[in-house]
Structures are given as C-alpha cells and as structure tokens.
Lab assay of single mutants.
Amino acid sequence: NQASVVANQLIPINTALALVMMRSEVVTPVGIPAEDIPRLVSMQVNRAVPLGTTLMPDMVKGYA
C-alpha cells in the first residue's frame, strides 16, 4: 500500500512545512504520496491541519 503524508503536529494556516511536521503512514483515503515529502518542505498550507490529518493536494499552496 502507498504511504501518504500525515501531519505530525497541528500545522497552523499559512505555515511553511518542515520535515518535523510530517510523517508517512498508510491511510485511507490516500493523500499526497510520502515520496513527495522533500518537495513539500517550505510550501505553505492554506488551512489549519490538525495532528494526524492526511495532507491532500488542495491543502498545500502550489502543490497541485
């Protein structure tokens, strides 16, 4: 199964993503693939992302 990017902490709106904020986990539904974690670093989220939430492409500015 494909691992997705999951929030490792609460990520406030407009926060630039850092490695420590993300982990990979096999979840349903599938979100952003875990292999894209390096690409996500320094991109901003466009909403608050609670701990344990799967990151979806529409949550990250400039990802989709």
Rank of each mutant, 00 (worst) to 15 (best):
N1D: 14
Q2G: 14
Q2N: 13
Q2F: 13
A3Y: 09
A3M: 14
A3E: 10
S4A: 02
S4P: 01
S4M: 02
S4L: 01
V6D: 00
Q9H: 10
Q9C: 05
Q9W: 06
Q9E: 11
L10F: 15
L10A: 12
I11R: 00
I13E: 11
I13D: 10
N14W: 14
N14I: 03
T15N: 04
T15A: 12
T15I: 07
A16V: 14
A16Y: 13
L17K: 00
L17P: 01
A18I: 11
A18G: 11
A18M: 10
A18S: 13
A18K: 14
L19W: 09
L19N: 06
L19C: 06
L19G: 07
V20D: 12
M21D: 07
M21V: 03
M21Q: 06
M22Y: 02
M22C: 03
R23V: 07
S24F: 07
E25L: 13
E25C: 05
V26C: 06
V26E: 08
T28H: 14
T28A: 11
T28I: 11
P29S: 03
P29C: 04
P29L: 04
V30S: 15
V30A: 15
V30N: 13
G31E: 00
G31A: 03
G31R: 02
I32D: 00
P33N: 11
P33S: 09
P33K: 07
P33V: 06
P33W: 08
A34M: 07
A34K: 06
E35H: 12
E35L: 11
D36N: 12
D36F: 10
I37L: 11
I37T: 06
P38M: 10
V41C: 04
S42W: 08
M43Y: 09
M43N: 04
V45N: 02
N46H: 08
R47N: 06
R47K: 10
R47E: 10
A48F: 11
A48I: 14
V49S: 02
V49A: 04
P50S: 14
P50M: 09
L51M: 14
G52K: 04
G52M: 05
T54Y: 01
T54D: 02
T54L: 04
L55P: 01
L55E: 00
M56R: 09
M56A: 05
P57S: 06
P57F: 07
P57R: 08
D58T: 09
D58H: 11
D58S: 13
M59Q: 04
M59G: 03
M59R: 01
K61I: 14
K61G: 10
G62N: 12
G62M: 09
G62Q: 09
Y63I: 04
Y63Q: 03
A64H: 15
A64S: 14
